[in-house]
């Protein structure tokens, strides 16, 4: 690319982003934009894939056939969403193998929430309701992201995820209104998943490393704190309907702000988990590596078979 062109291309790119036009794979884009997108999108894809594990943990123990079908379909959807996102990221010139390698060597991150264990059946409800709920708040904003394939993947994902949150809430409702033991499981799950769900939105706006550039490029559309507040505002009334206690004693309606106030997140824990010291960080990556390695001979066989078929075809042609 000639230098004189570079300026013109940059100007055209900036104009497009400012005008809310989408950037498409074959368009010129700044290197940093591409890098940032690959980081954010692959992290998003990995989150879907690793997110299959904590819920998958209960597929074989789901307590009714209906719940089993719902959970299986939901975890499968997460896999599908990972696929849509890998597919969209591949349009930026990185292969899925490279992304998987980055995940397995811990160069790429995934949502820290999935480093928490699912200990009781109520956790499956809490994950669907709170974790998917938080993810949806984030993803709805991303439907307007500037990169075309990412925005389209988000639209598809949001459409499919509408049932994910509802099934989780319905499960919580069943347990919160059930036996004392069930209600206690539901409360415990809410207490444990509340804070990690709030952490899903990332650090406060002032402390977020990638935020300002990403906002400018419209890779991110709304700030971490705005989205977090939206999630709190929509979730608190849902907790009331369940009849459970608030997981944070400081939650209180603030008439002047028109929002719920809430307590401060324990950021030490947030960074501890991000830096690999959550209860399940090692387990999650090991699981992924093991499945990948166990499948190596299958992929090898597919490759060998394809090569043999191609050779046969060549021989016939000769």
């Amino acid at each position: 690319m000639r230098n004189t062109d570079e300026h013109a291309l940059q100007a055209e790119f900036d104009r497009r982003v400012a005008a809310e036009e989408k950037i498409e794979p074959t368009d010129w884009m700044p290197d940093d934009y591409r890098k940032n997108l690959i980081r954010q999108m692959s992290q998003h894809a990995h989150s879907e894939i690793i997110g299959m594990q904590p819920e998958g943990n209960w597929i074989t123990r789901a307590p009714s056939l209906r719940r089993k079908a719902i959970l299986l379909a939901k975890v499968q959807d997460e896999g599908g969403h990972g696929l849509y996102l890998y597919s969209a990221t591949e349009t930026l010139g990185i292969t899925r193998s490279e992304m998987i390698e980055a995940l397995q060597t811990r160069k790429a991150k995934y949502a820290s929430i999935f480093n928490y264990p699912t200990l009781t059946w109520a956790d499956i409800g809490a994950v669907g309701w709170l974790v998917d709920g938080a993810a949806i708040v984030n993803q709805i904003a991303l439907q307007r992201t500037s990169y075309g394939p990412y925005a389209r993947a988000m639209i598809r994902i949001c459409k499919e995820e509408s049932f994910h949150q509802r099934q989780g809430y319905e499960l919580m409702l069943e347990m919160a209104k059930g036996s004392p033991q069930q209600k206690q499981m539901a409360q415990d799950a809410l207490n444990r998943f509340w804070w990690p769900s709030l952490m899903m939105f990332g650090p406060h706006d002032g402390d977020s490393a990638h935020s300002s550039k990403s906002m400018q490029w419209k890779i991110k559309r709304e700030s971490n704190d705005t989205l977090r507040q939206r999630f709190i505002d929509q979730t608190v009334p849902q907790i009331e309907v369940l009849g459970l206690e608030m997981p944070d004693p400081e939650i209180k309606w603030n008439e002047t702000r028109g929002h719920y106030d809430s307590g401060e997140i324990n950021w030490d824990e947030f960074y501890k988990v991000i830096n690999g010291n959550g209860p399940c960080n090692h387990q999650r990556i090991k699981h992924h590596v093991k499945a990948h390695q166990d499948g190596e001979w299958v992929r090898e066989a597919v490759r060998a078979y394809r090569a043999k078929q191609a050779r046969k075809k060549d021989e016939r042609a000769a």
Partner: peptide, 29 residues
């Protein structure tokens, strides 16, 4: 070093209903 992909990438086009065009929806391996 880019790893060799085990499988080829295919683009997927779906016709959602009779009378409509096939539309690109994504890709898979």
């Amino acid at each position: 070093m880019p790893q060799q992909e085990h499988l080829a990438v295919y683009e997927v086009f779906v016709r959602s209903a009779r009378g409509l065009d096939h539309k690109h929806v994504g890709s898979l391996h």
